[in-house]
Write a protein that binds this DNA or RNA. Structure first.
Lengths: 218, 218
DNA sequence: GTAATATGTTAGACTTATCTAACAAATTTG
DNA sequence: CAAATTTGTTAGATAAGTCTAACATATTAC
């Protein structure tokens, strides 16, 4: 059994690995807001437990066991977020800090019940995939909105940043997952996009925003 | 903010106080399965925080602040139990260990949502009162079944012991809260009761069981 | 009312997870 | 490629919560 703190290291490592495969001590330290020497010593501990491959001055990698245990925590996090939104009436901007705590509950049955009541969802409220019970994650190939071209019609499928700030911004523009958007034009200078969707014929989205929105081409 | 561990001490102290008003270090030590010296030092710490009245060699008492903070934790525990039973399909024998973890979640909104979805229940699935948001508890005057007499007709209103063992025993006899029972006879030698209820014309309940069942006279 | 027992405290050690300061290796830069 | 910068490690300190061993006080029993 891993401690709550070990679970947080595994989770951070897993999330950082998804983009890079390998992770620096420094990156992990920044993500967790924990100083590097502390991270180093935890890496040694997790290495002892066969959860992390650690060698001095080398990048960090999760073992298969480590990946699986991290994915289970992430599964619990995302099921919780979905449950909070679907069954308890929370907005998607409010669920992260609660899920951050609930994910550490030790009771497979509790999360199985959530899963069942939700009808075995594949995605969480932010469009992130929910790992299965064995820790397997099915990653869909996503495009960033920022990489699309003028004239494209796309569907909003996920958000990258799940901070309350960003999600409240999306709420204020009535941008929600599943929404269909048309790209009317892209400003070459600052990559700002003019898009239309729903009842909004013309909305301006900064590059910063477009980089955080994942879409499917239609 | 109190740590998870401090919350457990407060809760245990509150639960033990309900019967006695005062609690020994020794009793608390046994309840928590934590050695006495550790309990002593935690009492000093909680005394610093104005949650407990502690003097060497004297019995322990919660301050008003301590009572309130303990009651809030117990509120979260009992709301969780109710939610697990009513909204997630758990049996009353399975909810305790999960609630024991969920009670430490820091998010008043999370528990307010539960409360609302449950319709602001006053009792948990075991018949224990749910403290209100201010930590006020309304204690009903209960009788133990073991104190009733032959011929009495009573309604099962609460259980004292919430161990899985005991609750599974009650399940096996179809004994649930709200059930009406008639006491047919009481064996003077060992205080065993013969009762009838539902479709069961004659069931034998040991004194041990009868002491753990709280009832209302009809 | 003293002896025996039960209860409670003090002192000091251990574990986990954190930190800072100092040093070491790797990477980047001119 | 050598200097400067960034990244990583080691050593030692700190805090929370636990323990055991030894000692102190209270309570119970005779």
């Amino acid at each position: 059994m891993n401690s709550l703190i070990e679970e947080n290291y595994l989770k951070a490592l897993f999330n950082l690995s998804n983009s890079k495969g390998e992770v620096n001590v420094n990156e992990l330290s920044k993500r967790l807001e924990i100083k590097m020497p502390t991270v180093t010593s935890m890496m040694k501990k997790l290495s002892e437990k066969k959860l992390v491959l650690y060698e001095s001055y080398k990048p960090l990698r999760l073992t298969e066991k480590g990946k699986k245990e991290a994915a289970i925590v992430i599964r619990k996090h995302r099921l919780t977020e979905m449950f909070l939104v679907q069954k308890m009436g929370f907005g998607w901007e409010d669920v992260h800090p609660i899920a951050e705590q609930v994910e550490h509950i030790q009771s497979p049955l509790f999360f199985d019940k959530m899963d069942e009541l939700l009808g075995f969802p594949k995605l969480d409220p932010h469009g992130s995939p929910i790992p299965d019970k064995n820790g397997k994650v099915i990653w869909k190939e996503f495009n960033k909105l920022s990489e699309c071209k003028s004239g494209d019609t796309i569907k909003l499928t996920a958000v990258i940043n799940t901070s309350g700030e960003f999600l409240k911004f999306l709420n204020s523009r009535e941008l929600s997952l599943g929404l269909k958007l048309k790209i009317k034009s892209v400003e070459p200078f600052d990559k700002t996009m003019i898009v239309s969707y729903g009842k909004r014929p013309s909305e301006t989205l900064s590059h910063t925003v477009c980089e955080r929105l994942l879409v499917e081409k239609i």
